[in-house]
Nucleic acid binder design. Structure first.
Lengths: 230, 230
DNA sequence: TAATATTCGTGAATGAATTCACGACGTGCC
DNA sequence: GGCACGTCGTGAATTCATTCACGAATATTA
């Protein structure tokens, strides 16, 4: 049994991110830079150096420069980066310069919290459909959004042009919810259930496992380790 | 006759960690193994091989073995790992074989959701104090827990032996909440505010940034990248 | 018991990410 | 202009993480 990783995407070879493979860490840091730049802009800074940015977010100047260099040359030697313009550029790279329609599966505790989560809205992620399979919830109004039957997900996805689905159902129901979303053609899923979901090639899945983070804390407390900052 | 060099007589079988630096990724995977083992135990497996575990969680067998080897030799050659015992061992390493008292700052949407989050309770993380600075909320009862004034945090931490604090307040108030917790002697903080908090040495901070995860999705959609599984 | 099949544990090899170090370029001052 | 200084952009060096590969130990079967 040859279990070497098959490169089975031979069919439609997409123009994968033109240049090089960008590491996950780099993308995460872009989010960090983006937030920092928003703050710096508010504080009135017109330019910012890699050193400033690094100190502010506890990174190294070299890393900031290297990360940004994957996407272009945005800085001016001797001066730094233009705050506002860099923010705009990063927004375009991350895709937060547009509005994304988000569908939420699960109208429970976490789901409800996400509907009101300001940070999502601020970045252009708009939840405009909620799905559940509980007949008592279906039809009721939640923060201005009527809760739909999950059976109607495919139809709603099409009607509302939903591009991202957030799964906030119990672990036992998560895979099924995921399958429904995939079946409807969704290519990006954010999962809050503490379980490893299976998705086909071509679908991006991110799992937000809150239990994992708190277990990390319990590990450091238990082992009296020197803490590792985020 | 021992052909291989005998283990250096010094640290032959030390169960204690701290020798080598354990990487963050390894700790995260321990959480994954722990959850997988719980499931496998429920499914009736008495033993599990690194291969099984790896396939189940989309990792490699070598990585599973390497991760576990940092903490000891738990397996039996030719057979695999004893499911139940390994689970117990990992629980001890992660510190989820005990109850942790958790204080929650912020009785808003996210805070409320966390109080009801089953996975926390299941792993022994018990929220037994809630703090807020909104006078209208203070004194009211939330799922059986009376909401306290954040001014009383230090006293409650002592009284209830709280070891972990979860911050679920708006970004603008997060650093202040964090400072109060640190001042009260808390050594482990889980932060849900989308901001980089400053903590002194000796305090472990983990930040759960949900916006960052959804931005990752928007990045992949924007750049038509090949998805990277969680 | 002996022969074969599994699977662990781990040093070595490889690969990936981070940091270093320096040339190039721009600013600001005299 | 000329000089001193600051900062970017990036190949090279380094550090860190993952995977390979194989000996040792155990299970299984005949």
């Amino acid at each position: 049994m040859n279990s070497r990783r098959a490169k089975s995407d031979g069919d439609g070879d997409r123009p994968v991110i033109s240049r090089r493979r960008i590491s996950e860490s780099t993308i995460r840091r872009l989010s960090i830079y983006y937030r920092a730049l928003s703050a710096l802009e508010g504080e009135g800074y017109h330019t910012v150096s890699s050193k400033d940015l690094a100190r502010r977010e506890k990174l190294t100047p070299a890393q900031v420069r290297k990360d940004l260099s994957f996407f272009g040359s945005f800085g001016t030697r001797g001066l730094g980066y233009p705050t506002k313009e860099l923010k705009t550029r990063i927004a375009a790279i991350l895709g937060v310069d547009q509005t994304w329609n988000v569908g939420l599966i699960g109208a429970g505790n976490i789901g409800s919290a996400l509907v009101s989560y300001k940070e999502f809205q601020k970045q252009g992620f708009v939840i405009n459909a909620i799905f559940d399979n509980d007949q008592r919830k279906i039809g009721s109004n939640h923060k201005g959004i009527v809760i739909s039957d999950i059976k109607d997900l495919a139809a709603e996805v099409k009607k509302r042009n939903i591009q991202i689905v957030v799964i906030a159902v119990p672990a036992a129901a998560a895979q099924q919810a995921c399958d429904v979303a995939v079946e409807a053609g969704i290519k990006a899923i954010l999962n809050f259930a503490p379980i490893n979901l299976k998705v086909p090639n071509g679908v991006t899945l991110r799992t937000e496992n809150m239990a994992m983070e708190i277990e990390y804390l319990s590990f450091t407390l238990t082992n009296h380790m020197r803490p590792i900052p985020t």
